[in-house]
Design a protein around this nucleic acid. Structure first.
Lengths: 223, 223
DNA sequence: TTCGACCTGACAGCGGCCTGACAGCCGCCG
DNA sequence: CGGCGGCTGTCAGGCCGCTGTCAGGTCGAA
């Protein structure tokens, strides 16, 4: 975990650094707003600890510029005690959390960990097979990077095949999964869906193994 | 946005409810730990405001059980003034933020908005999607730079779509977040809102993917 | 060659979705 | 207190895209 500490008071800065490092973070420091802005804009941090009173460029301005540029890393703001207007302002500017000064180091570390924990584990779940990719978050399918419009049923079929892309899926299994057992469709319904999908996908994407079932190309070694 | 307020003091609870509702949230309240645990475990909330001193089941225990069950919604904890240990404990139990009592309602609302944004990976309060922009601080919507007057319900719909503008939102999810589970509306209510909104927004802003749900244009690359 | 598994285009029914009209509710104001 | 207007859920009607079915055609295995 990489952390940027922006703090002009050298003593506080070194205390912060010590505490965070002993908690397992890799810490980089910076004492003025200009440099902070540059670093936060160009480097990748898992967390920024930002003091608002800075020389050369105000902390709030720095934060707003980062957010304006689409930088989304979690930012923990240090504010003066009792300045609640400043806190609201900071939060509205895009801060993820703030800590009033003075504070205990244990608390800062606890909140730093919480922020990092929360920001982790986002991002879209993208699954691929050959030239085909499917984003289960956005429910999007793309072929060679080009978005492809599929119907709900086609999507369900593709996502099931994608989930089991290491084997061949028998038609019965697909029928069972696409429709329930109750409202069973006859096998031809599935064939129709496959045909319509292939028209969109082109050749060599959705394969058939006669007598066994359907699969996504490429199917492992062998075949 | 759907919020659960867990607070045993009826006066504070109603103040919280009023403040959050005037900020565009849909608020549900609950006065004891047992019910809170059940609700948080079974319903989908965009935020929980949790008081620690609760009858029947302690707030910290409730929070830990939620987290233990994999519930990941952002939780804002209300603590007594100066209770350091309690705060650290709360954060380690999985709280995303805390607010010491007494607090200003403005600050609570600001932090609530910030938490909701952050939980969706959004830093800024000003969100845009194509020609549409919405400022969640001022509850202000504009289209192509021109201010747009929307009703409370329309605003809630738009802000939820904006918060999740990188994916398609199924109608069930929208119904759940616009209304609660207790007063469930039928799907057509949602369709009516969408239709009225589209009359204001014009074409190519609020899109539909048949069989999937609604989304804001433009969604991702293409389509 | 024969048989059955699989493919394909055409077509019709269904159902998801849209829309306009209407009525109940509520806050506002005279 | 009563009327008024905005907001919103419900209803009925209609459109159109999705999807199952059918009737052939094709292909591979024995």
């Amino acid at each position: 975990m990489r952390v940027l500490v922006v703090e002009d008071d050298a003593r506080i800065a070194s205390d912060l650094k010590a505490a965070l490092e002993s908690a397992g973070f890799r810490v980089e420091s910076c004492g003025d707003g200009e440099n902070a802005w540059f670093l936060g804009d160009t480097e990748e941090y898992d967390l920024v600890v930002l003091d608002l009173g800075l020389p050369r460029l105000d902390g709030l301005t720095v934060l707003k510029r980062w957010r304006g540029n689409g930088r989304e890393m979690p930012v923990l703001v240090l504010t003066a005690r009792g300045a609640w207007a400043e806190r609201v302002e900071g939060i509205d500017a895009g801060a993820d959390d703030y800590l009033p000064k003075p504070f205990r180091m244990e608390e800062l570390v606890a909140r730093a960990r919480a922020l990092v924990r929360r920001s982790a584990g986002r991002g879209s779940a993208l699954q691929e097979a050959g030239e085909l990719a499917i984003d289960t978050n956005r429910m999007f399918v793309s072929l060679r990077g080009v978005p492809l419009s599929v119907t709900a049923l086609e999507y369900r079929l593709l996502s099931y095949l994608m989930l089991h892309k290491d084997r061949i899926i028998p038609p019965v299994e697909l029928l069972e999964h696409l429709y329930g057992d109750e409202d069973a469709r006859e096998a031809n319904a599935l064939e129709a869906v496959v045909a319509r999908l292939r028209r969109k996908l082109g050749p060599n994407v959705l394969g058939t193994r006669r007598g066994f079932g359907y699969f996504l190309e490429p199917l492992g070694p062998g075949r």
